[in-house]
Design a protein around this nucleic acid. Structure first.
Lengths: 187, 187
DNA sequence: AACTAAATTTTACAAATGATAAAAAAGACA
DNA sequence: TGTCTTTTTTATCATTTGTAAAATTTAGTT
């Protein structure tokens, strides 16, 4: 997916505004297992995935928990860095070799203040991340791990194939043993 | 809290922009138990709480789940209505008599396109809701019900006093009986 | 193909949580 | 104050999920 297509997916921008963002982006490629965002640091860039798959995880009391998977066209950001200029809590690891579009947060923030189209793009971007996040929260509150696993099977078939089950179990909020039991039960 | 203070809390606006929003707001008061936002409808307004406390809940497979509490200065919105102009999944009920500032979404959306300061205000508003939501999601994924209850006790002491335990248990994702056990255990 | 390491599944047991019913306590209101 | 209703707690038992360890499968390398 081209960077223009990814940007316009969020909110359609005039060519001039699109160019202002595009001209500040760099395409980068990293290998599987590379950590592009490290916790407890201020991450100066945001990324959009051109190809590949990544996961975000955080550590809490010695436990590692995966809380997000990202695929083609999705944004890879450290929320606290991007929004509050603070050290983030997420580690983001590439689960496959990935090509990403990289953009400095500060450059984008400057554009927000200069170009109303880009400001509205930034608004829509945050709004869409917001609605996705709220839906994940509600799914987590309402549904059992089994339901959420089946949902993942239906909506993200490739994800199950491309990501190891330990990460999926962590994402579902259960142990790998429990996930194995669930998988055995639905066969 | 005045409406200007609430708006500026999100992102500091010039007086002229502030006035454009403020002039379109109406103060409304509703009694305890009133439902201001109903599920499966498109809600045309957003609200900011001047005083009182509210809860958002949704129904799924016949089960009612509380997933949010809002207090003074917080925004009351139907996410799907505000962001996507679609029917929402949340019911929002007043848990006390409330005074709210009401604003039509469409009016605000028009202002986003006309005033770059307001567009950036809207961006910051979404960004802050986003970070709050992601933090709730992570808290839910990382912490046990007991930890989350203790966290609520520390950060929202008044909430525990003002809201009945059935709603708090639902919010924590456990039964009321379980919450009672937890409360008995930590004494 | 054989070896090694990593990932996944299975098993057994322990701990936590849920469902249900009933009792106790707190609140609402004439 | 006394009665009625709602909310909270307690008790019991069934079910689910977690922990730990072993067995199996898969993937990667020589």
């Amino acid at each position: 997916m081209t960077i223009d297509a990814i940007l316009n997916k969020v909110y359609t921008l005039p060519q001039t505004s699109l160019a202002k963002i595009r001209d500040n982006m760099v395409e980068v490629t990293y290998p599987k297992q590379h950590i592009i965002i490290k916790d407890h640091t201020i991450e100066p860039n945001i990324y959009f995935i051109k190809s590949g798959i990544v996961r975000a995880y955080a550590n809490f009391d010695g436990t590692e928990v995966t809380f997000w998977f990202g695929k083609e066209s999705e944004a890879v950001i450290s929320m606290r860095s991007y929004i509050e200029n603070k050290k983030g809590y997420e580690n983001i690891e590439l689960l496959e070799d990935c090509t990403l579009y990289k953009l400095e947060s500060n450059t984008l923030k400057q554009l927000f203040l200069e170009d109303i189209h880009i400001a509205n793009w930034g608004r829509k971007f945050a709004e869409q991340e917001l609605i996705k996040t709220e839906e994940r929260l509600i799914s987590k509150q309402f549904k059992t791990a089994t339901q959420r696993y089946l949902e993942l099977l239906n909506t993200n078939t490739d994800l199950i194939k491309r990501v190891q089950l330990g990460h999926i179990a962590s994402y579902l909020g259960i142990t790998q043993v429990s996930l194995s039991r669930i998988r055995a039960a639905i066969k």
